[in-house]
Amino acid sequence: MMMIVCQTPRLVIRRFSHQDAEFIVKLLNEPSFIENITDKGVRSVADAIEYLNAGPIMSYKTHGFGLYAVELIENNMLIGMCGLLKRPELTLPDIGYAYLPAFWRKGYAKEAVNAVLEYAQQQLKIDKIAAVTSLNNISSIGLLESIGFKQLKTMQLYENEPKCRYFELLSKI
């Protein structure tokens, strides 16, 4: 059963399921995903199911939120992911998103981020949300700043990975 988290005029934001495994393989192997986020090592449908089980699906059970599938309403096409993560390295939940390059610069990321933030604040009662980006991900930095996120510092989130920018958004409530 498909669980819709929120909708916008153009997008359905829903929980991931195993049926999304082929899309996950495609998205996580995009050069832009590997460059700006990380190489998750997901190379097959079996890897993608493992990623979904250990990542988004586990997060839904553990935290009540996670990364969600983002689909176009007009044709049910999966175009990316957007949602909340709860990393042990950060005290606050953080917003995360990634889209296939064909869907960049069309306003979908901002639309989905705003919808997920509204859901987080109104339904989940989360009053502070963080975000992290790679140092040189200019598009993502611009998106976060346009919504009201403020960069507070640069930090090393994970050992053996480059530093990243750390942002916070205070509640809009």
Score class of each variant (00 low, 15 high):
Met2Lys: 15
Met3Glu: 10
Ile4Thr: 13
Gln7Glu: 15
Gln7Arg: 13
Gln7Trp: 08
Thr8Asn: 06
Thr8Trp: 03
Arg14Ile: 02
Ser17Lys: 07
Phe23Met: 06
Phe23Ala: 03
Ile24Trp: 02
Val25Met: 05
Lys26His: 04
Pro31Glu: 00
Asn36Leu: 07
Asp39Met: 01
Ala46Leu: 10
Asp47Trp: 00
Ile57Val: 08
Tyr60Gln: 05
Gly66Asn: 03
Gly66Phe: 09
Ile73His: 09
Glu74Ala: 13
Met77Ala: 13
Leu78Trp: 05
Leu78Glu: 05
Leu78Cys: 02
Cys82Gln: 02
Cys82Ala: 09
Leu85Met: 13
Leu85Ser: 12
Arg87Thr: 11
Arg87Cys: 09
Thr91Phe: 15
Thr91Trp: 15
Leu92Gly: 07
Pro93Trp: 14
Tyr97Ser: 11
Tyr97Arg: 08
Tyr97Pro: 11
Ala98Gly: 01
Tyr99Glu: 04
Leu100Asp: 03
Ala102Gln: 15
Phe103Gln: 02
Trp104Asp: 04
Arg105Met: 06
Arg105Glu: 06
Lys106Phe: 07
Ala109Leu: 06
Ala112Leu: 02
Val113His: 04
Ala115Ser: 08
Val116Phe: 06
Tyr119Arg: 00
Ile126Gln: 07
Asp127Leu: 13
Asp127His: 15
Lys128Leu: 01
Lys128Met: 07
Val132Gln: 11
Ser134Ala: 13
Ile141Arg: 12
Leu144Ser: 07
Ser146Gly: 08
Gly148Tyr: 02
Gly148Pro: 04
Phe149Met: 05
Leu152Met: 10
Lys153Pro: 12
Met155Cys: 11
Asn160Lys: 14
Glu161Ser: 12
Glu161Ala: 10
Lys163Ile: 06
Lys163Gly: 10
Cys164Asp: 14
Cys164Gln: 15
Leu170Tyr: 11
Ile173Val: 11
